[in-house]
Amino acid sequence: MATRDPWPPSETELAEVAAALERAPATGVIAWAHERTEGRLVLACSFQDCVVVDLVSQVDPAMPVVFLDTGFHFPETLAYVETVRQRYDLRLVVTTPGPEADPWPCGTERCCELRKVEPLARVLQDQRGWVTGLKRVDAPTRATTPVVAWDAARGVLKVNPLATWTDEDIARYQQDHGLPVHPLVAAGYRSIGCAPTTRPTAPDEHPRAGRWAGTDKVECGLHLA
């Protein structure tokens, strides 16, 4: 009788796997994680685009897809979520913040903590891993993102199948596969978060320059916890 690999994976295993999968197709990274977690894996998607949704659907069409509804998303984002949900018949899990978030509206100190970080942590309590859409080119804070790693704060596997992709790779994949594009992209929004704290960016600006503009904030906390 075959024995299962011990859980959780060791640091040595994850380092070896991350190195082995560094140049693997994104679907290969997802497939490895799906098998290693025995299917106890979710995708957390911001729905800035749906490339990672398309890739996950090729490996496990039934994988739960988590959307963190902060209560401050653009109407266009909510409409885009529904478009993608229908296209892939997603097992969509929509989180909403509890009443403790009410005193902390968008842009305040604890908004992201209470509307994103804590809701995701609750979802992951029953899982062994989560898939993200992180790319190394997104921000200096993400420049060393491995394709797989251990999320020590949440006690789960963290899977970043797009870590090595560029923005050009994303655009090319969308075009080649006829994927729906977020409606705000045409209006100059190249990084899309909550409406009160997101603005369009000029072609010569970094795509994330429009997030929390005028502040020194660069991350919501999901990838720093």
Rank of each mutant, 00 (worst) to 15 (best):
Y80E: 08
A31E: 04
H34W: 05
L41M: 10
E82F: 07
Q174T: 15
L162W: 15
M63E: 00
V66W: 00
L55N: 05
K116I: 13
Q58D: 07
F72G: 03
E76V: 14
L124S: 08
Q58S: 10
Q48S: 09
L92R: 12
P75W: 14
V65E: 00
A31G: 10
L78R: 15
E76N: 11
Q86R: 11
L124P: 13
F67W: 10
F47A: 10
D126H: 13
D138I: 11
N160F: 03
T95S: 04
A153T: 09
T37N: 05
V84P: 02
L43M: 04
V117S: 00
R136H: 07
V147G: 00
Q174A: 11
Y173G: 06
T77I: 11
S46D: 03
V53F: 04
L43I: 13
A31D: 04
A31Q: 08
L134R: 13
D151C: 06
V52C: 01
P99W: 11
A171F: 07
V42Y: 07
R85A: 02
R110S: 02
C50I: 10
W150R: 08
P140W: 11
P97K: 11
E35L: 04
A143Y: 05
S46Y: 09
D167I: 09
Y80F: 11
V66S: 00
I30A: 03
E118F: 13
L114N: 01
A163R: 12
Y173F: 12
G39E: 02
E118V: 11
R36K: 09
A152R: 14
V131Y: 04
P61E: 05
D176F: 06
L41Q: 12
Q86C: 02
E109S: 01
V81Y: 10
G133E: 12
Q174F: 10
V137C: 06
R115H: 07
D60E: 07
E118W: 12
R40F: 08
P75F: 12
C45N: 14
P75R: 15
E118C: 02
Y80R: 07
D169F: 08
V156Y: 13
S57A: 09
G71A: 02
L55V: 05
P161L: 09
V123L: 06
E113Y: 14
R91H: 09
P64K: 03
V59R: 13
T108F: 02
D102W: 03
